[in-house]
Design a protein around this nucleic acid. Structure first.
Lengths: 184, 184
DNA sequence: TACTACATGTAAACGGTTACATGATTGC
DNA sequence: GCAATCATGTAACCGTTTACATGTAGTA
């Protein structure tokens, strides 16, 4: 039970939207799941083969001129059933995210306060950029241009990222003023 | 540059507070860094040996009666220097945290809305418990009983967890009402 | 009687990242 | 001439988790 290859289900989920090549899967994940799931080819291609071995997907080769041949993967009925089962299954363990900034900050006593301030400032700027990206995607998703059928769910997950990022920025500001006061 | 054993520095950081056995290190991390760093013995003991090999720590064996012998690890000057260097070094890449709830939610179109609602409700309850834990630790850290010298930094990192958890709970509530409306 | 605390470690398996290899077409 | 896009894959390496192994003392 404990060890589950969740990226396999991420691939299955993408295939449930429509057939994809491995290359396209990466793009789809980068466009829609980027703020909570990332994956490289080193995981995609071996897992795609595993899906075929399990009978959860089938491949069809398509020759192309001028471009490399395509391997198009389509989800099967068994694949769909397994996806649904997994989607319904409760989430057992929420692993703690490792946070390098907090790790460095926790031992901040060892270095001058200014160095911790620099770390937080940089972090804050990066999070502000992330927030701007989210807002742009949100604007697109809520516009008329977007005809996505799972638009609502895409928005839901995006708003998670937005809220969390906003609260991190708030925390950065609070922490920066705490440390600046401490310096005096 | 890209691949760095951060847990090694987490151990070094703990040793910078005071000498520890491997067993004690786990406890210290569980008490203070629990919300952003977790580690098992399978990582602690091999990394402790690595620290000694690098000359960043030294071991001293202490015999005990009734209890197993202790291996007490103490940070060296070289270890301290390397810790400081690492603490100052800017954070390069903030990896995206994989979120199983959001992954399941993103493909929520495949299952009845009620199942997604159940996932979020469960998640919300867990986060509420987490928040209560944080509040208890915060109360202790801000009390007079706590004589920790790096209290300020412990509080800083704790408040990160608090803020993020609060915003996640808010998101859960927002999302639950969105999905409930969608059901009608 | 059974569980928790104390205490140290190893081995296997797994998930994930990075680097490498190949190569044509399109657009700047 | 150079970068980007399209397209598929492998191999090595690394970090992490889990299971296993061992044993005493104190407490409920």
């Amino acid at each position: 039970m404990s060890k589950e290859n969740k990226s396999l289900f991420a691939l299955l989920g993408v295939l449930s939207l429509r057939p994809h090549t491995g290359y396209e899967i990466k793009k789809t994940i980068e466009e829609g799941l980027n703020h909570f799931w990332r994956i490289g080819y080193g995981q995609i291609y071996p897992n795609l083969r595993k899906l075929v071995e399990l009978g959860w997907a089938v491949v069809r080769m398509e020759e192309q001129q001028g471009k490399p041949d395509k391997n198009i993967y389509t989800i099967t009925e068994t694949g769909m059933e397994n996806l649904h089962q997994w989607l319904r299954r409760p989430i057992e363990d929420i692993p703690v995210e490792k946070n390098e900034l907090l790790l460095k900050l926790f031992f901040g006593d060892n270095i001058p306060i200014d160095e911790s301030i620099t770390h937080i400032s940089k972090f804050k700027n990066e999070k502000k950029e992330t927030l701007a990206d989210y807002q742009a995607i949100e604007r697109f998703l809520t516009s008329e241009d977007c005809k996505d059928k799972n638009k609502i769910y895409a928005l839901l997950t995006l708003r998670y990222g937005k809220r969390v990022t906003e609260s991190i920025i708030d925390w950065c500001e609070e922490s920066l003023s705490t440390l600046k006061k401490l310096k005096e």
